[in-house]
Design a protein around this nucleic acid. Structure first.
Lengths: 220, 220
DNA sequence: CGACAGAATGAATAATCATTCATTCTGGGT
DNA sequence: ACCCAGAATGAATGATTATTCATTCTGTCG
């Protein structure tokens, strides 16, 4: 889970020593994806250009097409990266057998979902920029829903375990999981669009409240 | 241009019965906003062009600039229209003094939020297309948050009334209102991006569940 | 009926952008 | 020291697009 984006590695002001460097394909691809994320966050998906992305990456215009064939493909791969980073992180926590207490695992999940890594404006912007286009672009729907389904199943399983352990009555794991996922998505939206009215702290409190009402024995 | 052979003068590409009509400014503006909504839903915000919008409206290319000055402004006004339609509808229901039973009013609100009018894919697509750009465009943030704040206050007031009436303990109107709003937003997202896994029926059930757990005396 | 205000048109313009590819350069291999 | 596969560059190209505005047309009013 290396969050290497935003790290130095780059001298925006091209100091006199601007020497051409040859790097392996995978590294250049990641460098371009990171630059794309920053550009989308700063300018919006509809305003992103290849010139913008490549210059943000400190490279020449032609390089994006060299490594990604087309702009469409670069954007697609950027979405895939963000989706996998987010859902992969969640799944890792939910499977986390090194954290046997289910209540603690819930807490860790919430921390991840509303903590530093994910709710950086950059990542959220990208996330919702693609959601906005998903209605018109089946490719995006497919990428997101593929990875989403797995996370949803894991969450449902975790909730089912908790329900069993806590002997909770009148709750259904599937329905709760859908609700919790939607709640988290909605809170991300709020953090992005109305940051003045919804702080990260309050978003956590609201999510925690949801869990407490569902699993009172597990969440203090 | 034309020879002297006496042939009928060439008819411009006038489709049968397509005569130029003069209509008041307000009507043309709405016609263009409606066309913009359809175009965003079908092609995505980043692919919308003026040609596309004006031709969808059945008008000439120049007319959008005539009535909206610029593309940016047309998009801004379209967002304003959708935002006001959605939030206005909610507020009307929440204020609805013709519906004295608070439980019924909650039901009506839920019906509106997840019912036909709002969750048409068209409207949802537009909604989230703008959310995606909001991170980069303060104008959009302002439009949405202005209208959003009012709806949030009304919802909080309604919840407060319900809490008082039902003598519910250990719940806070403000926190619940934030959670409920986020939940609805998240469900809209799910309906848009993963329609296969989340049906409208199930979305309603999930939202209802949230309300039932919070206000058991008011929601059956 | 005739004239006119201004609504509507769409060809032309100028700007922007994705993509190509001939050329330059790098670093590892011999 | 030399070579060269292929990584990187960026000027050139062609396609797309927002915006303008001279012209055409419509409905109304005197």
């Amino acid at each position: 889970m290396s969050d290497a984006s935003g790290v130095v590695t780059e001298e925006p002001p091209q100091a006199a020593g601007k020497r051409r460097q040859i790097r392996p394909r995978a590294e250049r691809r990641q460098q371009l994806i990171d630059a794309t994320i920053r550009c989308i966050a700063q300018h919006g998906l509809s305003k992103v250009t290849m010139q913008m992305v490549t210059s943000e990456a400190g490279l020449s215009v032609g390089i994006a097409n060299l490594h990604f064939q087309s702009k469409d493909n670069l954007l697609k791969e950027t979405l895939r990266f963000v989706a996998e980073e987010y859902h992969g992180g969640q799944i890792e926590i939910m499977e986390g057998s090194e954290m046997p207490d289910l209540g603690h695992r819930l807490d860790a999940l919430l921390d991840f979902q509303l903590g530093r890594g994910v709710t950086q404006r950059q990542k959220m912007s990208v996330w919702f920029a693609y959601y906005g286009e998903a209605g018109a672009r089946p490719v995006y729907q497919k990428i997101v829903s593929t990875v989403d389904r797995l996370a949803a199943q894991k969450l449902e399983a975790l909730f089912a375990e908790i329900i069993h352990e806590g002997q909770y009555q009148g709750v259904e794991a599937r329905e709760l999981a859908t609700g919790y996922s939607a709640l988290i998505d909605g809170l991300h939206l709020g953090l992005l669009v109305t940051p003045r009215e919804l702080t990260k702290r309050r978003a956590r409190a609201v999510a925690r409240d949801f869990l407490r009402r569902a699993f009172p024995h597990h969440i203090c």
